[in-house]
Every structure is written in structure tokens, then in C-alpha cells.
Amino acid sequence: MKPKFRAVGMQAAVALFLLTAGSFVAYAEMLLRKFGSISTVQAFKEFGVISPQWHKYAGEFIAFTHKIGSWYLPVLVGVPLLFLLHYLVIGPKSFSHKGQPIPFYGAFTRFLHWAVAILFSTVVVTGLMVLYAKALGGGSLILTARTLHLLCGYGFAVVAIPLFLIWLKDMLPAPYDIKWLFMAGGYLSKDVKEVPAGKFNLGQKMWFWLAFAGGAVMVYTGYYISSLSLQPEILTGYLKIHLILGLFIVALFITHLYMSLFAIKGSLSSMISGYKWEDEVRVLHSRMLKKS
């Protein structure tokens, strides 16, 4: 081998070595730099300690919790006052309860109605207790109320289903409901006039759908509010739905109490005995007899 050729070989070997070693060093340097590559600010963002949505929903939610108590007050005071006025000015409807007793509610229906009534009333009362917890001092009294609210809410969800199915057919809207609405069910006059209604009038239908369909929404949202198993931004939305829908349910709950206990004499006993009398049905549920 010529000396000149050997020198070129040496040079190539050295160059190859430098190239290989250099790239290893560069790679190692890059790896080392990577450990310090995340800045503190970037890391704080990636931790996600603060929910990115928080700034959007929190302020509104805080304001809502301050207002909601005062939204319920007009309903809790105003609606009963309105009915007191109605009772004094127009007065209750009473019928002679002569003639034939007409079977209205079966034994199973009555049993379900009273089971739902007890559960629903407990839910309403305990719900209002939680809402006005501050006035009641909070603590274990309200914790007990919350437990009852939960238990009776779940109980309602179960017992309401058969009652919903039994009444569903008669609770579907009918064309004459509009007429009932225009004459306000005859409740604004002292005259005893025939009212267009089948087995249930529009008022009862409204209460039915609010209590059962609305009740389903209440149970659904209530489940998540109690389990806290969703993102806070969704939970705050559910809480708003729960409390605003609850406002309407409470209003119609009071209405239902007034109608059954005071406004129509004998209404309560019909849900106990299961019978309504012919003269009452002819006026308040006129379409029912015409159909049969």
C-alpha cells in the first residue's frame, strides 16, 4: 500500500469518528435540555388546577345563589294570598252530592295517589327547608331534611311510574281544553255552569304533566346534584334547572292543595272513597258522561 493512500484512509476514519461522536453528543445535549424545556407557566397551564370554564360560570352562579331565595318568596306568600282572596270573594264550589255515585278512582289508583302524595309533599317541604336553611339555623336539622329529600325523591321516581301510566290516557290534551282555559275552568264566577272537561280538566292536566314530566327532570338533575359526579359547570346548570322548575312545581302544588282541600267541597273524600257524585261530574267533568 502506498503511504499517500494510507493517509487518506486515516483522514476518512477520523472524519467518520468525529461525525458519529458529534451526533451522539448533540443528541445527549438535546435530551438533557428537554428536562428543563417546560416553563413553570406552561406547566401550571397543563396541570389544569383551575377549570378553564370557571371564569365563565362562577360569577353567574354566585349571583344566582343569592337571588333564588327571593324568587320563591312571592310564590310561597303570593299564591296562598291569591287563593285566600278567591275563597273570600268567589267562594268554594259545593254540590248537593245527590244522585248516583260514579266510580272515579280505583283502589290501586287511590293507594298510588296517596303514596305519591306523601312522598311528593315531603320532597316539597324538605326542599324548601334546604332552600331556607339559614332561617332554620342549618346543621343536623337540614342534613336530616336533605336525607329525606333524597329518599322521598327516589321513592317518588319509583311509585310515580304506575300512576303516570294509569292516568296518561285521560291526561292527553283535548280540543275542549282551550275552552276550559278561556273560562278559567269556571273558577272565576259563582255560577254553576257546565265546564268542558273529560275525566280530568286542563288544570288537572297541567298539574299532572308538571308533577310527572317535571318530576322526572327534578329526579334526574337531583341525582347529579346529590352525587356531584359531573363537571361543576354542568352541575351549576342542573342546579338552576332544579330550582327554577321547582318554583313552578311549588306554585302548582299549592294550587292542588287549595283545590282539593278548600275550593271544591267533597274533592278530598272522592280520592278517599273513589266516588264522585253525578251532579258534580255533570258540571265539572261534563264530557265524561256524554262520552259513555
Binding site: V49, I50, S51, W54, A58, F61, I62, T65, V130, A133, G137, G138, G139, I142, L143, R146, I225, S226, L228, P232, L235, T236, L239
Partner: peptide, 17 residues
């Protein structure tokens, strides 16, 4: 804890969970 009613509003309002 004698007054708290466990309603969970604070959980919904807290930015840090």
C-alpha cells in the same frame, strides 16, 4: 361543621375542586 348542610354549592363554586 355544626352549621354546614352539605349542599355542595361550595364544590360547584370552587375553582380548584
Amino acid at each position: 361543621k355544626d352549621v354546614c348542610i352539605g349542599c355542595g354549592y361550595c364544590f360547584m363554586a370552587c375553582p380548584f375542586g
